[in-house]
């Protein structure tokens, strides 16, 4: 449950989700559930040349790449390999405490 609540705190922030099929999607975290399924808003594929099926027309002024014709998407938690977080979204002290508490079973 620790990571579920942790991800809940990250809602609204910009994250990059790397999937097990090497697809990396960047977007604003919209919501997360108990299985760590993730919903992203304003998503875009980081390496868009390899994945034309999700890219729409070129988006001017967006150097991060093409914007998706898929703007909002749901990612199943079981296919996620990494979630890259914004550094300011990580409070290591708080995580330490929470992990200790979890380990004690409280």
């Amino acid at each position: 449950m620790l990571f579920f609540s942790y991800f809940k705190d990250l809602v609204g922030r910009e994250v990059t989700v790397e999937l097990k099929n090497d697809l990396a999607i960047r977007g604003t975290l919209h919501s997360v559930d108990q299985y760590l399924n993730i919903k992203l808003e304003n998503s875009r594929v980081v390496d868009q040349d390899k994945y034309p099926h999700m890219t729409g027309e070129q988006d001017a002024g967006n150097d991060l790449g093409l914007r998706l014709s898929v703007r909002n998407c749901f990612i199943r938690g079981s296919v996620v390999r990494y979630v890259q977080l914004p550094p300011e979204g990580v409070d290591t002290e708080l995580l330490h405490d929470a992990t200790r508490r979890e380990a004690r079973g409280g």
Binding site: L19, N21, L23, I25, S43, P52, H53, M54, T55, G56, E57, Q58, L66, L68, S69, V70, R71, N72, C73, F74, I75, R76, S78, V79
Partner: peptide
């Protein structure tokens, strides 16, 4: 469900594929 990687909403206003 186990075969699903991603479900995306397609934007009807936009082109689905590069031109």
């Amino acid at each position: 469900g186990e075969n699903v990687v991603l479900i995306g909403e397609l934007d009807l206003e936009r082109e689905e594929l590069p031109p």
